[in-house]
Design a protein around this nucleic acid. Structure first.
Lengths: 331, 331
DNA sequence: GTGAAAGCGCTAACAA
DNA sequence: TTGTTAGCGCTTTCAC
């Protein structure tokens, strides 16, 4: 049972002054005399007075809560993103409410409703694989709640977006592979439905088509770790490519399992390059060369965008986080 | 700007009936006639009526929000825990508010205050390294907000706790090492201040003292990955132990870096065993043998405890999640 | 079966 | 400088 809290009314009765005076004293309103302020504040602190947020929120229609909606938190990217947003949010007086869509459209929609009912003041979202209709987000935004897409973003205009430099990242990887003289490339991407996959794939392919026409590049879309491992196992039986590109950590993990199983030496027998948030590639020996896409930095960037919108700076724009190549010894 | 929402008042005016009738119709109150209910519900749905949570909360003094306070989300354990809690919470109509203490006491305290002001109905917490005084948690619980500690728990009674079987996990590891005939053991633990470290250390040491007195076990407390790597590098220069025990993933990562640098073969030159949530040990080749401590399962367990408290079942108890040995090829 | 009215705790316009 | 008052939108008791 929640215990009865102190209220302005109680304070005012104890002090023999009116509720509004107490309220104003507590917020350092210039009208109130120094003496009264002191009296009020002292009593408030001895009584551990805390304003009732429910009442404040009803009155002000402000929750100071920001929502984050991601496919899952169990991911070596979103957790960094969330962490960054949380840190920034706290600094600015906001709290964070998190929900997972589990990559299901139905859950995504019901969670948006929960977040709206909780009166979030802004939403960060990375859409589910199944999402096609952006209406729920549009409605949210139209009702005054800014929406910032990140990572998996809506392929429509009219929303703020914080993106990784997907195209640049894929290009950097392609370029690195070509520069090392690799000609027989296995390129693995994630779910073909996602914008992030489309961008990386198109950019990677385009770069090879333009700059190394004689290369033999094979493309697959194995989504997760186990699918990647199986795929590679099969491929390695026939012919081992001289290099593998992995669009994400999970694919990399699968590939490395297959590499170990086939007892291939990196980089002597096979070169590996990936795109990653950072930790996983550094666990292998030699460390895997990767194009860094920092979830943490992206979170900071996304918060900046959100904060601007929150403060009435209504500019809708796409912010892109630069990618850098982190050289390991795998290429 | 938040756009004006529909309210009960508006509906009642449109329908020409009173606010209270509308309110009751919407909640299927038995007093209201079927006809009226139908009319009300139809209008409500065409107008996309949604109750104003601020008002509901003020009236009912219930937020249906649960808080989670962890040192950091950027961790391959807490994210699983949070994910599980979120999934369960959604099923039961609760939302999750997350805050990070960054292992700083000051942030922990201010975040507790934020959570309290946000009127959370329950709190899951894994304490910071600096935390010693449990008063803030006690006060929260005394004011009717159940607190469930997990992972890093308070070393005092009177709180619900959801723990990993720390002692059992350490014992399983110790037993495995002894059974493999390893006699020259390097045992690495985390921050000595934490209950989790104390339990694992005491149990591990105790098991060796009892069951293998002639073993030569060296203990260190290197906290994070880089410290572990450095420590091992130094140790390996003098004498390579026949086995290493790693209390957590970060320590394991550091150890494996040192192992690779020293070009030691696992398990021929050195055996490795750890305690882990699961992913990291499986990335190495051979996979590292580890005692599993599932953050996801712990989250489900902790939620069950919380839910019982929320529903008035006031029993305070310590729940322990069983550990199991997952054999890789490193021992 | 329906309506009127009180009140959750706070803020802020207006009065004094 | 301080007090009075009118709500914010909803739930719920009590009256009809």
């Amino acid at each position: 049972m929640a215990i009865q809290q102190n209220t302005l009314k109680k304070l005012s009765e104890l002090l023999g002054i009116s509720i509004s005076t107490v309220s104003r004293a507590l917020k350092d309103h210039p009208d109130i005399s120094v003496k009264t302020k002191a009296r009020v504040k002292e009593l408030a602190s001895t009584l551990d007075y805390e304003p009732n947020n429910f009442a404040v929120q009803l009155r002000t229609q402000q929750s100071n809560v920001l929502g984050i909606l991601v496919p899952t938190i169990r991911n070596y990217f979103y957790d960094f993103f969330i962490s960054a947003v949380e840190e920034e949010a706290v600094k600015h007086g906001y709290s964070i409410m998190i929900m997972q869509s589990c990559d299901k459209l139905s859950l995504e929609i019901s969670n948006i409703n929960v977040l709206r009912r909780n009166k979030i003041m802004g939403l960060f979202v990375s859409i589910s694989i199944e999402t096609e209709d952006m209406t729920p987000f549009r409605k949210l935004q139209d009702s005054g709640v800014p929406v910032v897409f990140f990572d998996r973003v809506a392929e429509v205009s009219g929303f703020s977006k914080a993106c990784l430099a997907d195209e640049a990242a894929a290009q950097i990887a392609a370029k690195s592979i070509i520069e090392k003289g690799k000609k027989n490339v296995l390129a693995l991407f994630g779910h073909p439905h996602l914008s992030i996959t489309k961008l990386r794939y198109a950019s990677f392919k385009n770069y090879f088509d333009l700059h190394s026409k004689d290369s033999n590049v094979t493309y697959f879309f194995p989504e997760q770790a186990e699918a990647s491992r199986q795929l590679c196992s099969e491929i390695f039986k026939n012919k081992v490519p001289d290099s593998v590109f992995c669009m994400g950590d999970m694919i990399l993990i699968g590939v490395m399992h297959a590499v170990h199983e086939a007892k291939l030496k990196v980089p002597e027998d096979i070169s590996i390059i990936g795109i990653s948030n950072g930790l996983i590639p550094t666990l292998y020996n030699p460390k895997i060369t990767y194009v860094e896409t920092s979830g943490f930095k992206l979170g900071q960037l996304a918060f900046k965008q959100m904060y601007a919108s929150l403060k009435g700076n209504e500019e809708i724009e796409e912010v892109i986080l630069e990618s850098i190549l982190v050289e390991g010894g795998s290429l």
